[in-house]
């Protein structure tokens, strides 16, 4: 997901295409294999989702995605993303700023720590919140005594989503922030800008495509998360089911067309995300490249 930040522009040696010796036959074969694989594992399932969704006609489809429970699931999914994404982008900016601009002991450790939620299974992440905030724990007991419900209610779902998505924005922003360098920021300070002015007028515009990219990826993951959310949800119909959970429920209710209808909504969301990602990803790459080429000249 992140390999397109391989600093291709900045550091790659200026190698012209030296003839890498694959005969055209091999190349064609590789191409065919790639497309066959994509077709089998990507386009076929996607087509199946939409075929199944409309298998019983448009009426069933519309009824499925507009039922009260479906609307509740869509609302919860969007609300969760609306909370998790800005929080994580805020966090990502702060973390990227810290990592890109300062040297301090334990920096490498911090960078590793940020990635922790990626390496932990989402189910474990969910369990973690139950073990931390379930009513059998001191903190959970205190919350329950004060009438606050976190686990098996919306806040738990939001928390779990924040946890699993929180490295995404930081991961996107750190390389962009590093590449953009701090010369312009220093210039702004020298010219009399306050710290806040420098941040909003120089730093943020410089990394803006990184921010947008982070938002897109973070939103996609937040809306699609299943494992962690499943553990803390409690699966109360019309109340604590997000769209992915609701798909599973419908499927187990023998409502196959309805399940695929809601799944097709999720698939649509990811197609939109993919398109945005594609558009924004190119701007990010060029931003990094631009900054990378600019710097040596300035230094010289």
């Amino acid at each position: 997901m992140f390999e397109n930040f391989g600093f291709t522009g900045a550091n790659a040696p200026h190698s012209r295409r030296v003839g890498v010796g694959e005969p055209p036959g091999v190349r064609r074969a590789l191409l065919a294999i790639t497309f066959a694989f994509l077709g089998l594992f990507l386009f076929l399932p996607l087509a199946a989702v939409f075929t199944e969704a409309f298998a019983k006609g448009l009426g069933v489809y519309l009824a499925a995605i507009s039922s009260q429970e479906a609307r509740a699931a869509i609302r919860l999914t969007l609300t969760t993303a609306a909370i998790a994404v800005p929080l994580n982008v805020g966090f990502g900016l702060a973390a990227a700023w810290l990592v890109a601009r300062f040297e301090f002991p334990g920096k490498q450790f911090l960078a590793t720590l940020i990635d922790l939620p990626f390496s932990v299974s989402p189910v474990i992440s969910g369990m973690l919140f139950v073990l931390l905030l379930g009513v059998r724990t001191p903190m959970g007991e205190w919350l329950a005594d004060h009438g606050l419900r976190i686990i098996f209610a919306e806040p738990g779902i939001v928390l779990a989503t924040i946890f699993v998505t929180f490295p995404i924005a930081a991961r996107e922003l750190i390389p962009v922030m590093q590449a953009s360098g701090q010369d312009e920021e220093e210039a702004a300070i020298v010219l009399g800008a306050s710290g806040f002015q420098m941040f909003t007028r120089v730093t943020l515009p410089n990394v803006r495509w990184g921010v947008v990219y982070g938002v897109v990826l973070c939103a996609a993951r937040a809306m699609g998360e299943f494992g962690a959310v499943s553990v803390v949800s409690g699966h109360i119909r019309g109340a604590t089911n997000t769209m992915p959970l609701y798909v599973e429920i419908l499927y187990n209710d023998y409502e196959f067309s309805a399940a695929f209808a809601v799944a097709s909504l999720l698939a649509l969301l990811s197609i939109v995300t993919l398109t945005l990602k594609h558009a924004v990803g190119r701007r990010v790459a060029s931003q990094i490249k631009h900054a990378g080429e600019e710097l040596p000249r300035l230094a010289a």
Binding site: T79, A82, I83, P86, L87, V89, G90, F91, L93, A94, G147, L148, R149, I150, A153, E154, P155, V158, F196, F199, T200
Partner: peptide, 22 residues
């Protein structure tokens, strides 16, 4: 918007939901 403003807003929404649930 600064991340502080964003944080404050999100925390507010979060508490609102927690309150509404109970």
């Amino acid at each position: 918007v600064s991340s502080v403003q964003v944080l404050a807003l999100a925390a507010g929404v979060f508490l609102l939901i927690a309150g509404r649930t109970s």
